[in-house]
Amino acid sequence: MLQRFAIYYAPDVTDTLWDRASVWLGRDAAATTFFEGAVAGLDRSRLLNLTQSAARYGFHATIKPPMALAEGRSAEGLEAALAEAAREMAPVPLGRLRLAFIGDFLALVPAEDDPALAGFAAGVVEAFEPFRAPLGERERAERAAAGLTPRQQELLAAYGYPYVLDEFRFHMTLTDRLAEEDRDEVLAAARTWFGPVLERDMVLDRLVLFHEPKRGAPFRRLADYGLGRP
């Protein structure tokens, strides 16, 4: 099956938020390390069941969604283009993050919306669109069956993903879909676990290339590209 690449934001691997999120998910996507033990009162086996998909993707905020490479494009070419583009981009303030539900998922989101963030993400989506292979019919049908709005259907057809441009919302996913009876307990545990590292302003200071070697395999954090750095 085809490999895929994604352009994400993630904190530096030395950042406490990266460490805490990796332990929460049970997996460090950079070091391919796995974690045992309970987290903030949640048994590890239960937490793993609630975070299987989130852990597979690794802790991140999606900027350019996972994509197979278009014919004639290579991983080396993508890396070179990403390095060049990042040098020309300025960091984007995120402010403080907070815990919030996006539908049935628990995530970290900016405490205040900033149009500059959506504009930044749209620019990355457009800039790297030439690297994206078109979706296969099966993938398109699976996405289209997910109850998308007409606008999201348009974006899916144009960009292979329904939540870009005006449908984009910056978020760093912490769980899979949660049943109603799990939400309060998981949210309380997340507040305990993440609270100490959410009392500071964050900056989107890098783009990070993630790689899925084959469909369904865990994504790995390949390389960081600092914004505005020579």
Rank of each mutant, 00 (worst) to 15 (best):
M1R: 10
M1V: 06
D12H: 13
V13K: 13
T14I: 00
T14K: 09
D28L: 09
G37Y: 12
V39M: 04
A40V: 05
R44F: 08
S45L: 11
R46K: 10
L48D: 15
L48I: 01
N49L: 06
A55Q: 10
A55H: 07
Y57V: 01
G58K: 13
G58H: 09
K64F: 11
P65L: 09
M67P: 01
L69V: 03
A70V: 06
R73P: 01
R73T: 12
A75W: 04
G77S: 12
L78H: 10
L82D: 11
A85F: 14
A86E: 05
A86R: 06
A107M: 00
L108H: 13
V109K: 02
V109T: 12
A111L: 12
D113C: 00
D113G: 07
D113R: 14
A116K: 12
A118Y: 01
A122I: 02
V124N: 10
F128I: 01
E129N: 14
F131G: 09
A133Y: 02
R138T: 10
E139M: 10
A141F: 02
A146E: 15
G147D: 14
T149F: 05
T149M: 08
P150F: 15
E154I: 01
Y159T: 04
G160K: 08
L165H: 15
D166L: 02
E167T: 08
M172T: 04
T173D: 06
T173H: 03
R177I: 00
R177C: 08
L178K: 06
E185Q: 14
A188P: 11
A189L: 05
A190V: 09
A190Y: 07
A190R: 02
V197P: 02
L198T: 07
R200G: 08
D201W: 08
R206A: 02
L207C: 09
L207A: 12
P218T: 08
P218Y: 08
L227E: 06
R229I: 03
P230F: 00
